[in-house]
C-alpha cells in the first residue's frame, strides 16, 4: 500500500476493472474496426501494472491465472492452434476459417492478447520488485 498517494490507492481498484474491461472491449472490437489483440493486450498490461504499482506486485499477480511467462506461452499456443485448424480442412497453415460470426481469427486474437499481457507483465513485475526492495 502506497501511503503517499491516497487518491490513486483508492481509485486503483475500480480503475483496474475499467481498464481491463476496456481492454476486452478493444480486443473484440478489433474484429471489424481498429483494435485487436495487441492493443487490447497493452491495455490489460496497463491495468496490471497500475495494480502492481499501487498495491504491490503480488496483488497484480493474483489477478492473472498463470505466471506471466506461462500466460504468454498459453497465448502463443492458442494462436498456433487457431492456425492449425486450416490444415485439417486442407488449406495452408494460418488460413483462417469463418463460421458465421465466429472464426479462428478470434482465437488467434485472443492468443495475441494473452501473449502480450503475459510477456510485458513478465518484464514489468521483476523491475517493480527490484524497485521495491533496494538491495
Amino acid at each position: 500500500m502506497n501511503e503517499r498517494l491516497p487518491l490513486l490507492t483508492n481509485a486503483a481498484g475500480p480503475l483496474y476493472w475499467l481498464l481491463f474491461l476496456a481492454s476486452l472491449w478493444v480486443l473484440f472490437r478489433g474484429h471489424n474496426a481498429p483494435g485487436g489483440g495487441f492493443i487490447g493486450g497493452l491495455l490489460a498490461v496497463a491495468a496490471s501494472s497500475l495494480l502492481a504499482t499501487v498495491r504491490g506486485v503480488a496483488a497484480a499477480r493474483r489477478r492473472q491465472w498463470l505466471a506471466p511467462v506461462r500466460l504468454a506461452a498459453a497465448g502463443v499456443v492458442l494462436a498456433l492452434l487457431s492456425g492449425l485448424v486450416a490444415p485439417l480442412a486442407g488449406q495452408p497453415f494460418l488460413t483462417h476459417i469463418w463460421w458465421g460470426g465466429l472464426s479462428t481469427v478470434l482465437a488467434f486474437d485472443l492468443g495475441v492478447f494473452l501473449a502480450v499481457w503475459g510477456a510485458l507483465t513478465g518484464y514489468i513485475y521483476p523491475l517493480l520488485e527490484e524497485e521495491a526492495s533496494p538491495s
Binding site: F38, A119, Y123, P126, L127, E130, S135
Partner: peptide, 20 residues
C-alpha cells in the same frame, strides 16, 4: 518496434544487473 522493444527491455534488465 515490438521486437526491438522486447530486446531493449531485456538489455536494460541485464545492464542493471551487471552494474549492480
Amino acid at each position: 518496434i515490438v521486437i526491438g522493444f522486447a530486446l531493449l527491455a531485456f538489455a536494460l534488465v541485464l545492464a542493471a544487473r551487471a552494474a549492480r
